[in-house]
């Protein structure tokens, strides 16, 4: 399957934070949810993909092209939604359109108008009166008006109410009707991903832990609960990390079937949530 984004062996160091030999791929035609705690390197990765930040070494390739030679060709095909406000506060959405439209070769005014109507965005009110959700929708309308093939979103649902988040998911489902379209979005509200993400990319502490099909995660990983007497030096090796309390233990395994073979009916095996995986992975490192 074709990759839209390929980061290979990226090194980047900042004061107090470092990404080492970081590689990820994003598959074309699917939604990839990008998860990890605060400071795990999600925003840095997105900035590297957008060329807002330059790696110390390694390669970034988008649509199979690199930024040195094809910066404009690449960005022509990307739509972006950021966590922070990127609009001129005193301008209206109409003015923003006047600024952004000429930047794209394939801007489609009809499409823009259609999404503005659909999202119920006011064209003549200044951007500072827009709520966070409206700004997110405005970014999406712009992304869709130039028929972006790759939509990159940094925490699009942070600070939005549940109804708004549900609406966004409907929009994304609508967008994915086009099989050439790819969505890559970071979030730490992992329940947003249950209904939309095809792949999950998990980073922790500047390190790529995995990229997997969502259903594979549920097949491979499991939360295991049992009594403390089941644990010894050997059995503890089966888990990524273990939370022990007076009443028993709860642990995460990355090999569900093996654990079932070892412990059989003596433990309870449950489907893990992404939060479980994030929590236990962090604990185990």
């Amino acid at each position: 399957m074709e990759n839209v984004i390929e980061l290979q062996h990226i090194h980047k160091s900042f004061k107090g934070f470092e990404i080492k030999d970081f590689s990820i791929n994003v598959k074309k035609g699917f939604v990839t949810g990008f998860i990890g705690g605060n400071g795990a390197g999600k925003s840095t990765t997105i900035k590297l993909i957008m060329n807002l930040l330059k790696q110390d070494s390694g390669t970034v390739s988008v649509f199979g092209m690199d930024y040195k030679k094809h910066e404009k060709d690449i960005k022509e095909r990307i739509g972006f939604v950021y966590d922070e406000n990127i609009f001129y506060e005193n301008l209206t959405l109409k003015d923003m359109k006047r600024i952004i439209k000429p930047a794209y070769k394939n801007w489609d005014d009809t499409a823009f108008q259609r999404y503005v109507n659909e999202f119920e965005l006011p064209l003549n009110k200044s951007m500072k009166t827009f709520s966070k959700g409206m700004k997110m929708k405005a970014s999406l309308a712009i992304a869709l008006a130039h028929h972006a093939e790759l939509i990159i979103m940094d925490e699009p649902t942070a600070g939005l109410d549940p109804i708004f988040r549900r609406e966004l998911l409907n929009i994304l489902h609508e967008l994915m009707q086009n099989e050439d379209r790819t969505i890559f979005f970071s979030t730490h509200i992992t329940t947003d991903l249950d209904r939309i993400a095809d792949y999950i990319t998990f980073v922790h502490n500047g390190e790529h832990i995995f990229t997997k099909e969502f259903y594979k995660i549920e097949e491979e990983y499991a939360i295991v609960k049992g009594t403390l007497d089941l644990l010894d030096r050997e059995t503890e090796q089966e888990f990524i990390s273990i939370r022990k309390t007076n009443t028993g233990f709860e642990a995460l395994t990355a090999d569900k079937n093996r654990v079932i073979n070892i412990f059989g009916d003596t433990v309870i095996v449950e489907k893990p949530t992404l939060e479980d995986i994030m929590y236990y992975t962090k604990k185990g490192r």
């Binding site: 035609g29 699917f30 939604v31 998911l169 409907n170 489902h173 609508e174 994915m176 009707q177 099989e179 209904r195 939309i196 993400a197 095809d198 792949y199 099909e213 969502f214 259903y215």
Partner: peptide, 16 residues
């Protein structure tokens, strides 16, 4: 993709 949208689930699930 249509089925994924109608069921509000990911495309890869219907694909599988």
């Amino acid at each position: 993709r249509q089925l994924a949208k109608d069921l509000e689930i990911s495309v890869i699930t219907t694909k599988r």
